[in-house]
Nucleic acid binder design. Sequence first.
DNA 1: TAGGACATGTAATGCGTTACATGATTAT
DNA 2: ATAATCATGTAACGCATTACATGTCCTA
Lengths: 181, 181
Amino acid sequence: MRLKSTAYLLLGMLRMGVSSGYAIKRTADASTHFFWPTSLAQVYPQLAELEGRGLVSRRDDHHGARVRSAYELTSEGEAMLQTWLRSDREVAPQMRDEGLLRMFFADALPEEEQLALVGRLRRRAQRFEAVMRREGLVAAKAVREHQGLRFPEIAARFGADLWSFCDDWLANLESELEADA
Amino acid sequence: MRLKSTAYLLLGMLRMGVSSGYAIKRTADASTHFFWPTSLAQVYPQLAELEGRGLVSRRDDHHGARVRSAYELTSEGEAMLQTWLRSDREVAPQMRDEGLLRMFFADALPEEEQLALVGRLRRRAQRFEAVMRREGLVAAKAVREHQGLRFPEIAARFGADLWSFCDDWLANLESELEADA
DNA sequence: TAGGACATGTAATGCGTTACATGATTAT
DNA sequence: ATAATCATGTAACGCATTACATGTCCTA
């Protein structure tokens, strides 16, 4: 019985106490989105499938006239999550970035435009870093304080630091290119 | 007339003098694959479409009984590539990494297993860095020496340095976790 | 002479996003 | 009241990978 990665995202979120499909998507957008994007059109069917496999259980959460599906992990689901966390099955990390693709072909441009291209990449990195520090890290810090979970914050720090590294690296490249010109 | 990113990859490769679909795929696997993966099943139809749009031209390259399709950029294709390199249309960079997803949920593990998980991530980063320095960078260096193109090497250096950064960052995390235990 | 690389394509399949559809609740 | 958010789903579409199919050339 093998699950797709998004299924583990759901199991993990449920374990954190995020119980509805909508809430999972909202939480994921503010945390795991950076290294594992997903959408509601994946979340709902996946939750239904996990329920079918007995890895999660569903109950109706009435709130006025409104009914909400609240899920939680079954013991089988918890075991499945644990097994996955310990496993070393490697799914090759994937990255797609048109910006880097542009840089790869930048020789086709005159020198001053090469510099401009690198500058755009750098400002983009700065923007992403700022967002992650402002939104991702703050939310993750709250999770640590309220639920004692530290790894969401570690992951958010990693994301921010990664973009910060890109910023520095590109700044350095700018200097090199300027020195040559 | 808007093209998809893979189309620009093809235009760029053709400009570098890589002229057949097969060769483009082979070259891409050793260079752009890291930030823009592709496959033969995309390359061949895309080349045909670019030909239909007049951005590339095709001729038969006879080699014994074997016929090879050799493509080159038309002036329209060259212009299209230039426009793209100068544009700042942003396609959000995407990343999917099950390893980071595991780390995000690592609180579910006992402490010594958290450390093991981080260790696995770190060794993976080391492996990727080694591959990029050994294969990617060497190939890119050759491109610079033979064709005077410097950005392929810059991109390869970026990839290797990025994994090196991950290695360092994770080493630091390991120390932090050990200090707490 | 056999296996691997070169070379070109198509078909089937899976995955993921966007758009569509619907309705309750809350804040302004 | 009315717009935004909460909440749940399905349908259509596009993109990408894997598998299939075919044949040549070169090297061990």
